[in-house]
């Protein structure tokens, strides 16, 4: 029970920690502000508690597929917010750029806070449902709580490492790493949303694109961690692969257009 709770919570925490550390590094770069993250995580946890407590009702919506529809909506919203964050990040990388673009200094932190809040609402609810479910069984609850804190601790540590890893990079490298990681995160979100919609029978099933379960099983620890970080699936459906690609391309194109617009406005003002 201890190990399974460590892994379950670690998986959810890693997903959130990656996004938080990326956006935190970006906001530190843009405005030297970090306090937003406390409100965003707090708000996200509050929403996830509401979602966890109401999961029984939500599940009954749309002929018992409400959970899938709500999750997919959250994932698509997070993706769109990441795209807007990417635009603001690339377009307003330096103070002069931000001034030229007319961005308020708090714009990025507000967007980042909304993104983190929505992402944590979904991921946090799963952990809370798990913990609330074990609460009545005192012995098990104790073990599960200890396991959850270990998982949470490891997840946060990895997030801190990612944050300092990104902060250690310089200039263009730093910006490109942030954009690439945001693109992978967005790919994972859209891929998971397509899976949810397929599970609810809103989009048709497609054949499996590849089977790498013999190389790296999704059930192995490495497989689970890779799933949390980049959305690794051993047997993804073709629709899922297409959705992943769409999520990645959305962010990359947003970054390319933002950087072109930024360059044009600079040359126009010179």
């Amino acid at each position: 029970m201890l190990l399974s709770s460590v892994i379950l919570v670690l998986q959810e925490t890693l997903e959130a920690a990656l996004l938080v550390s990326l956006l935190l590094a970006a906001s530190q770069q843009l405005s030297h502000k970090m306090s937003w993250v406390i409100y965003a995580i707090g708000g996200g946890l509050a929403f996830s508690l509401v979602y966890a407590l109401e999961i029984g009702h939500v599940s009954e919506w749309f002929e018992y597929t409400g959970q899938e529809i709500v999750n997919a909506s959250l994932q698509i919203s997070v993706t769109l917010l990441i795209a807007i964050c990417t635009w603001v990040l690339v377009r307003g990388w330096t103070p002069e750029n931000r001034q030229r673009a007319g961005f308020r200094s708090s714009l990025f932190t507000q967007l980042a806070a909304a993104t983190v809040m929505l992402a944590i609402t979904r991921e946090g609810s799963e952990v809370l449902i798990y913990l609330i479910g074990f609460y009545p069984i005192k012995d098990v609850f104790h073990t599960v709580t200890v396991g959850s804190f270990i998982g949470l601790g490891i997840g946060i540590s990895v997030g801190v490492l990612i944050y300092f890893g990104i902060m250690g990079l310089q200039g263009r490298w730093q910006k490109n790493t942030m954009v690439s990681l945001l693109a992978l995160f967005s790919g994972k979100m859209v891929s998971q949303a397509s899976l949810q919609l397929n599970q609810a029978d809103w989009i048709p099933s497609t054949p499996v694109g590849w089977d790498s379960s013999s190389l790296l099983s999704e059930e192995s620890l490495t497989g689970k961690l890779l799933y949390a970080l980049i959305g690794y699936e051993a047997t993804p459906a073709l629709a899922q692969i297409a959705a992943y690609a769409a999520g990645v391309i959305l962010i990359l194109i947003t970054a390319i257009i933002a950087s072109r617009v930024q360059a044009e406005s600079r040359s126009a003002s010179v």
Partner: peptide, 20 residues
């Protein structure tokens, strides 16, 4: 894992999952 399916089912309730 092989069917790529994952869904929370609350206590004393039911859930629908489409496969295949």
């Amino acid at each position: 894992y092989p069917l790529n399916r994952e869904k929370v089912i609350s206590g004393n309730s039911k859930a629908v999952i489409f496969i295949g």
